[in-house]
Amino acid sequence: MLATAATSPVPLPAPPLATLRVDVEGLRDRKGHLLFCLTRQTKDFLSCDKDPTAIHGSVAADTAAINFENMAPGEWALLMIHDSNGNGKLDTRFGIPREGFGFSGNPVIRFGPPSAGAVRFVLPSGTSEQRLKMRYIL
């Protein structure tokens, strides 16, 4: 007769999480809010607001740094808008942003938005820091 030992399932350890600190630089003024959206759907980063798993929100524009905790390590993209008039959106004139904006990786902005590869970054477990420079065109 074959005897088997009763085993109870051993819980797997939780995957290590990440903390991201984003230092915001180059604000024109401290009026309004900073709207942010962090997405793991980096190919569609410009549609971050349509990603149900994205981390989005706003903070007062006088905030120098934003901390994101308990994030999953992996590829991410960050978009930020300086909503200086507080209307909850990026104001444009003839398609040109009238308010400040920024992306992770601080890509060079020429004509149109940056590529997904230019804003994608890898977030390791533990604590990381990004510097995001706000840009103003008008």
Results as ranks from 00 to 15, higher is better:
residue 1 M to P: 12
residue 1 M to K: 07
residue 2 L to A: 13
residue 2 L to V: 14
residue 4 T to P: 02
residue 4 T to Y: 00
residue 10 V to K: 09
residue 10 V to L: 08
residue 11 P to A: 13
residue 14 A to E: 01
residue 15 P to N: 04
residue 20 L to Q: 06
residue 21 R to M: 05
residue 21 R to I: 12
residue 22 V to F: 03
residue 22 V to T: 04
residue 22 V to S: 03
residue 23 D to M: 00
residue 23 D to S: 06
residue 26 G to H: 01
residue 26 G to P: 13
residue 29 D to W: 08
residue 31 K to D: 08
residue 32 G to R: 09
residue 39 T to Y: 09
residue 41 Q to V: 12
residue 43 K to D: 15
residue 48 C to F: 13
residue 50 K to V: 11
residue 51 D to R: 06
residue 51 D to Q: 12
residue 52 P to R: 01
residue 53 T to N: 12
residue 54 A to M: 09
residue 55 I to N: 11
residue 56 H to W: 02
residue 56 H to V: 00
residue 57 G to P: 06
residue 57 G to W: 01
residue 62 D to T: 06
residue 62 D to M: 10
residue 62 D to H: 13
residue 63 T to V: 15
residue 64 A to D: 09
residue 64 A to R: 13
residue 68 F to T: 13
residue 69 E to C: 14
residue 71 M to W: 03
residue 71 M to A: 08
residue 74 G to V: 07
residue 75 E to N: 15
residue 76 W to H: 15
residue 77 A to Y: 03
residue 78 L to R: 08
residue 80 M to R: 08
residue 86 G to P: 03
residue 86 G to Y: 10
residue 87 N to G: 10
residue 88 G to W: 10
residue 89 K to Y: 11
residue 91 D to E: 11
residue 92 T to C: 10
residue 93 R to D: 09
residue 93 R to H: 10
residue 98 R to K: 12
residue 100 G to L: 05
residue 102 G to P: 14
residue 104 S to C: 12
residue 106 N to V: 12
residue 108 V to G: 00
residue 111 F to P: 05
residue 112 G to T: 02
residue 113 P to W: 05
residue 115 S to F: 05
residue 116 A to M: 09
residue 118 A to V: 04
residue 118 A to R: 05
residue 118 A to W: 01
residue 119 V to S: 13
residue 119 V to T: 13
residue 123 L to G: 12
residue 124 P to F: 07
residue 124 P to Q: 14
residue 125 S to D: 15
residue 131 R to W: 00
residue 132 L to W: 01
residue 134 M to T: 06
residue 136 Y to C: 02
residue 136 Y to N: 00
residue 136 Y to F: 03
residue 137 I to C: 02
residue 137 I to V: 06
residue 138 L to I: 07
